[in-house]
C-alpha cells in the first residue's frame, strides 16, 4: 500500500506523517498523529464524535481523506487548552454538560468553531451549530447552557 507524506499544522504545531492510500483523517489523526481526542462513533458522518476544524471549518474527520489535508491547519479538542483550559471546557464542567463524555470532544470543537465565527450566537444558532453532534446522555440542554454561558460572558475563565 502506497504511503503519502502529509504536512499539516496540528493544533498549531507543524507536523508531517505518512497517510495510507484511502485512509481517512480520523484514523490518520488517532493512529498516525497520536491525537485520540477525535472519537470514532459511526464512521459514516452522522454522529459528529469525530468533528475537527480544518482551516477553521468544522468537518467530520471520518469522511475526509487524510492526504487531502496536506498544507492545511487541523484543530482538535486536544488543542483547545493551552496553559489553561478553554472557557468552553470550564463551562462544560460547570454546567455538567457531559456524562459518558464520548460526544464531548466533537461538541467542544463545534462550539469553538461557532464562537469564532459568531461570538454572540442566539440559542437557536447554538442548537444549529451542534445539531450534527449526537449526545445520548445529557438531553443537550446542559450543553446549550454551557455554550451560551461562554457567549454571554457568564462563564468563569
Amino acid at each position: 500500500m502506497a504511503k503519502k507524506p502529509v504536512h499539516f499544522s496540528h493544533n498549531g504545531v507543524e507536523r508531517a506523517a505518512f497517510a495510507d492510500d484511502g485512509q481517512n483523517l480520523l484514523e490518520f489523526l488517532r493512529r498516525g498523529a497520536g491525537d485520540l481526542s477525535p472519537k470514532y462513533g459511526c464512521g459514516q458522518g452522522t454522529c459528529g464524535a469525530c468533528t475537527v476544524m480544518i482551516d477553521g471549518e468544522t468537518q467530520l474527520s471520518c469522511l475526509v481523506l487524510a492526504e487531502s489535508i496536506d498544507g492545511k491547519s487541523i484543530r482538535t479538542a486536544a488543542g483547545l487548552a493551552s496553559d489553561q483550559l478553554d472557557p468552553l471546557q470550564v463551562a462544560f464542567m460547570d454546567h455538567f454538560a457531559a456524562q459518558c463524555g464520548y460526544c464531548t470532544p466533537g461538541m467542544l470543537v463545534s462550539a469553538r468553531a461557532l464562537l469564532e465565527r459568531n461570538p454572540k450566537p442566539t440559542r437557536e444558532e447554538v442548537m444549529e451549530a451542534i445539531s450534527g453532534n449526537l449526545c445520548r446522555c445529557t438531553g443537550y440542554e446542559p450543553i446549550i447552557s454551557a455554550i451560551l454561558a461562554v457567549a454571554e460572558g457568564r462563564a468563569q475563565a
Binding site: C42, Q44, T46, C47, V126, M127, E128, I130, S131, L134, G139, Y140, E141, I143, I144
Partner: peptide
C-alpha cells in the same frame, strides 16, 4: 441500520423540563 435512518430527537427538539 444506522444513524441516518434511526430517528432520534436533536437539540432542536427539546422540551422545557
Amino acid at each position: 441500520e444506522d444513524f441516518n435512518a434511526y430517528v432520534m430527537p436533536g437539540p432542536g427538539d427539546l422540551a422545557p423540563h
